[in-house]
């Protein structure tokens, strides 16, 4: 089972290594990890997606809390939250295919952000399912390159 953990950390060098080392040192695999500064420049937020049973997850959270540079850990999977991911896809788009690609892009409310004779580059945000669906539909055209940010997430409502 996948879990989304949101971690507030001191915005300092070495913190990412401590967090990721904690996972690797215990043989936990990270599915994705996103870091960015928050509104407070001394604090960063990490969104980490991991797989594991409840016991593994409980240990991960306790171990994260034990790190001196970690301010707060929440398990978003346990509460109402929204998740988003951003993907950039370079698809080969020779003349005839172009219209077809454009149509799919419109249906998905994605955007074309770059074109040349051979390729179009598509940008889309969405949850994991939507992104996977777009990728599947693009595969037949020939994906040249693809990059995903990994999941970021935030709890719903005013808490």
């Amino acid at each position: 089972m996948k879990h989304t953990i949101s971690v507030l950390v001191e915005n300092r060098f070495g913190v990412l290594a401590r967090v990721s080392g904690l996972f690797s040192g215990r043989g936990f695999n990270i599915d994705s990890l996103c870091v960015g500064e928050t509104d407070d420049p001394t604090v960063s937020r990490m969104t980490i997606v991991v797989r594991g049973d409840e016991r593994v997850l409980e240990q991960i959270i306790k171990q994260l809390r034990k790190l001196i540079d970690v301010i707060k850990v929440s398990n978003l999977t346990k509460e109402e939250h929204v998740e988003r991911e951003l993907v950039l896809i370079k698809v080969s788009a020779m003349n005839k295919k172009r219209a077809e690609i454009m149509e799919i892009v419109n249906i998905f409310r994605a955007k074309i952000i770059d074109v040349d004779h051979q390729i179009v580059t598509i940008e889309m945000t969405g949850d994991e399912d939507k992104i996977s669906a777009l990728i599947e539909l693009m595969k037949p055209f020939g994906i040249k390159e693809l990059v995903r940010t990994g999941r970021i997430a935030i709890s719903r409502g005013g808490r």
């Binding site: 240990q59 306790k62 171990q63 809390r65 034990k66």
Partner: peptide, 8 residues
């Protein structure tokens, strides 16, 4: 004193 020691 260490919460991570509990139920480990």
């Amino acid at each position: 004193i260490d919460p991570s020691a509990i139920s480990k």
